[in-house]
C-alpha cells in the first residue's frame, strides 16, 4: 500500500487522519475496481465460519455412511458385543435420558441462580462491587472443564458420598429420585454430582446473557417506575423482567446448548454407567460424555464408530437448534425493548 498520498493526507499507522492545517484538495474518488474486488473477494472470506460449519456437518454426515437412525437407534438398549459388532444394538435412549436429566436439572438451578445474580449485579450492588464480582463470575467461565472434573471427582465425590447424599436421602427420601436403598450411594460419582458441576459450568454463560439483557432495559422505563413510587424490587419484577423477558429466555436456551455439549467434566464425575439411573445418586452417561469415553475403542469397530457419529449428529442438531433459538431471542432484546417502550408509553 505505497501509493502516493494526495497532499494533505497525513494518515499513518499510528496517526489517524484528521483535519490538521488547511483542508485537503478534493481527492480523486476511490477506483471502482478496488471496491468491487474487495466485495467480491470478501464474501467467501466472510463466509469462512459458515464454510467451516458446513464442512463439520458434511464430514459427520459422510462418516455416518447414510444408514442412519433406524428404529433400534432410538431404543433404550445399548448392547455392544465386540465379537459381533454388526449384530449389536446401539440405542441412544439411556444416554438421551442422562443428557435430559443432567442438562435439565442444571439449567433449572442455573437459571434461578443466574437470575438472582444478574438482578443483584445490575440493580442492587454498587457499581464498583458489581464490576469486581462480574469479573469473578466471568472467570468461572474460563476454567477448563477438566479442572472442574478433577475437582469434582477427587474433592467433591467423597464429600457427596459420605455426608451430602446420606443427608439428602434421609431428609428428602420421599421424593422420587432422592430415595433408594443405602447401597445406592456409591463413591459419590453420579447424577447429583454431575448436575452440581454442570450447574456451575453453565452459570457464567446464563449470567452473562441475563445481565446484559437486564442492562439493556431502557432507563426511562425504570425511572418511570420509580417515579410512580414503586420500590426497586417492584420495578425489577414489573418492568425490568418483563422488558428483558426474551433475553432471559435466550440465556436459558444458550445455556441448554452449552450443557448438552459438555463431555469431559461429566465423563469424570458421572460414573459412566450404561443403566437406567435408579436414583439421583446413581451413575449415568450423557450422549456427549459417552462419545468421549467410547471414541477410543471405536477405532477398531466401524459399526461402533457409525453409532457414535449418529450420537454426535443428535447433539449437534440439538445444540444448533437451541443456539438458534437463543440467538434469536437475544438479538431481539434491544429492538423489542425499545419498541415496547414506544408502544406502551
Amino acid at each position: 500500500m505505497d501509493e502516493p498520498h494526495p497532499p494533505g493526507d497525513r494518515s499513518g499507522p499510528d496517526r489517524p487522519p484528521a483535519f490538521l492545517g488547511p483542508p485537503a484538495p478534493a481527492a480523486p474518488a476511490p477506483p471502482r475496481r478496488e471496491r468491487s474486488l474487495g466485495r467480491w473477494l470478501g464474501s467467501p472470506l466472510a463466509l469462512a465460519p459458515l464454510l467451516l460449519l458446513g464442512i463439520v456437518v458434511a464430514v459427520l454426515a459422510i462418516a455416518s455412511e447414510g444408514q442412519n437412525f433406524g428404529l433400534s437407534f432410538w431404543g433404550p438398549v445399548w448392547a455392544f458385543n465386540p465379537t459381533d459388532p454388526a449384530g449389536s444394538t446401539y440405542g441412544i435412549a439411556l444416554f438421551a435420558l442422562g443428557t435430559a436429566i443432567t442438562a435439565g436439572a442444571a439449567l433449572l438451578l442455573a437459571s434461578g441462580l443466574s437470575l438472582a445474580i444478574s438482578i443483584a449485579l445490575t440493580v442492587y450492588l454498587p457499581p464498583r462491587t458489581s464490576r469486581v464480582l462480574t469479573t469473578l463470575t466471568d472467570l468461572l467461565a474460563g476454567i477448563p472443564s477438566v479442572v472442574y472434573g478433577i475437582w469434582g471427582f477427587v474433592v467433591l465425590a467423597p464429600y457427596f458420598a459420605s455426608s451430602l447424599e446420606p443427608t439428602l436421602r434421609n431428609a428428602l427420601g420421599w421424593l422420587p429420585g432422592f430415595g433408594g436403598p443405602e447401597s445406592a450411594i456409591g463413591g459419590g460419582s453420579g447424577l447429583l454430582l454431575g448436575i452440581f458441576i454442570l450447574t456451575l459450568m453453565v452459570i457464567p454463560l446464563t449470567t452473562a446473557v441475563m445481565r446484559e439483557s437486564l442492562r439493556s432495559v431502557p432507563r426511562e422505563l425504570v425511572e418511570a417506575g420509580l417515579a410512580l413510587g414503586a420500590t426497586p424490587w417492584e420495578v425489577v419484577r414489573r418492568v425490568r423482567l418483563r422488558v428483558a423477558r426474551r433475553g432471559l429466555w435466550g440465556a436459558v436456551f444458550l445455556g441448554f446448548g452449552r450443557a448438552v455439549g459438555e463431555s469431559v467434566a461429566l465423563a469424570m464425575v458421572l460414573g459412566n454407567t450404561v443403566q437406567f439411573p435408579p436414583s439421583l445418586y446413581g451413575g449415568s452417561s450423557t450422549i456427549a460424555s459417552f462419545i468421549f469415553t467410547q471414541l477410543d475403542s471405536a477405532f477398531f469397530y466401524p459399526e461402533l464408530l457409525r453409532a457414535l457419529v449418529e450420537f454426535a449428529l443428535v447433539i449437534l442438531i440439538l445444540t444448533i437448534a437451541f443456539n438458534l433459538l437463543g440467538q434469536r431471542a437475544v438479538s431481539e432484546v434491544r429492538p423489542r425493548a425499545v419498541a415496547g417502550a414506544g408502544g406502551r408509553a
Binding site: P49, L52, L60, L254, E262, V264, I291, L295, L324, Q327
Partner: peptide, 18 residues
C-alpha cells in the same frame, strides 16, 4: 456469517473432536 459464527461457537467440543 455472524449467525454461522455463533453456531460454530456452539458446536460441542466433542463433536469437533469426532
Amino acid at each position: 456469517a455472524r449467525v454461522a459464527g455463533n453456531l460454530l461457537a456452539g458446536i460441542p467440543a466433542i463433536v469437533l473432536g469426532y
